[in-house]
Amino acid sequence: MSATAGAARGALKINDAVKLYEPSGARVLAVDHCSLDIRPGEICMIVGPSGCGKTSLLNAIAGFHGLDGGSIHLDGRMLCGPGHPQADVGPDRIVVFQNGALFPWKTTLENIAFGPIMQRRMTKRTAYETARRMMADAGLSGHEYEYPGEISSGLRRRVEILRALMNDPSVLLLDEPYRALDALTKSVMHEALLETHYRTGTTIFFITHDLEEAIFLGHRVVVMTARPCRPKQVVEIDIPHPRDYGVLTSRRFRELAAEISAVLEEEALKSFTRGEKEGGVQ
């Protein structure tokens, strides 16, 4: 199956994005003239030093906050840009949060069916029907009536991704979703995510600190500069999909890892020394 199976949508075009914070007078330039084209159906992995502005960029795409310059287009439609600095939050771009945001007071099934019911796109019955089918497809049958607090953290992440996919989004925005998971759970998550991606072809914008994860999952890995954030280097991961864990031990994988980590380290060092000099404030 090719990387862009499914509908060719979810092209995200970020153009000269600028994000500026001004808390109590001190100016923090988080994102500066950042341009990035994300291809439809691509898994685009974002890595960069801690605090460089990755989340700020993601929040602008999601519409959680506005931009101070530049524009973002999704499939040719302007999300935000001149005259409309903040994108509308909507089910075409769904965020999966680092600590997970499944509603603890709803069962997994109710969580997954939440979107379409809220948007009045489906009746309750069809929504639950669809959600149940979706869980079955993902091999999660039997967990429908459990509350998020009762299932393992790995399962919670998978349910949350299903909840997003229920809305047939153009882009999934993942902000270090697997950060808190142990190694084994993580690897299961990766395989499940790839499997889902091969089925749906949804574009994925994925922030991570885990290089192995970035290379294993991504079509491309974008290394961001130290703050302010903009792409420093975009690395094509030329390992064919579908991938499995055998890839991890391949030579090409190690070469790519060495290449990316060299770039990343340089940036991390920059942000570190600057932090030392300026006390972390620009």
Binding site: A62, F64, V89, G90, P91, R93, I94, V95, F97, N99, A101, F103, W105, K106, F114, G115, M118, Q119, R163, A164, N167
Partner: peptide, 23 residues
Amino acid sequence: SYALAAECLGASRWQIFLHVVVP
């Protein structure tokens, strides 16, 4: 993040109140 997630999923302000704030 619960309210943000609900907003992402297309819930209106009133729906967020009912389905997130109250429970």
